[in-house]
């Protein structure tokens, strides 16, 4: 069975447009287990209930931004090993270096194509 059938991904973005775009791309790749959250806190709650292999999160969110979410994930005993890909509209070395320190698995800049996102995910989890 291919990885894309068993890989579970949680998409976190406060904008339903970006969320839908990411989800659409993931569906195009044939990923089956996709869930989403509208912000950091509900993502953490959801992961407490239903763990996922990988989180794809937006950076720019009100309240808890993507890096805060990553930080919280790495603190949680049950969530610290979850893969984390940050999505951001801008490339900022500060974000990247903080992300690196916190154990971010990969980064992708918006806007992206489905192959670009696929490549980004494969760099983390291996061939889909």
């Amino acid at each position: 069975m291919a990885l894309r059938d068993s890989l579970s991904i949680l998409v976190v973005d406060d904008m339903s447009t970006s969320r839908s775009l990411i989800i659409m791309a993931l569906e195009e790749m044939g990923i089956k287990k996709i869930d989403f959250s509208k912000d950091g806190p509900s993502a953490l709650q959801s992961l407490g209930q239903r763990p996922a292999h990988l989180v794809i999160s937006d950076y720019n969110m009100p309240g808890m931004d993507g890096l805060h979410l990553l930080h919280a994930l790495r603190q949680g005993k049950t969530t610290q090993k979850i893969g984390f890909i940050l999505v951001s509209g801008r490339v900022d070395q500060k974000i990247l270096s903080t992300g690196r320190q916190l154990g971010m698995n990969n980064f992708i800049q918006k806007p992206f194509t489905t192959p670009q996102l696929k490549n980004c995910i494969q760099q983390v989890v291996g061939p889909l």
């Binding site: 990885l3 292999h53 990988l54 490339v91 900022d92 800049q109 760099q123 983390v124 291996g126």
Partner: peptide, 20 residues
């Protein structure tokens, strides 16, 4: 922010072993 524009933005992806 063009100065940081490159394929990987200088970020090395961190692999995550997912058992298949």
């Amino acid at each position: 922010d063009n100065d940081t524009e490159s394929e990987t933005f200088g970020f090395v992806p961190l692999g995550l072993p997912i058992p298949t």
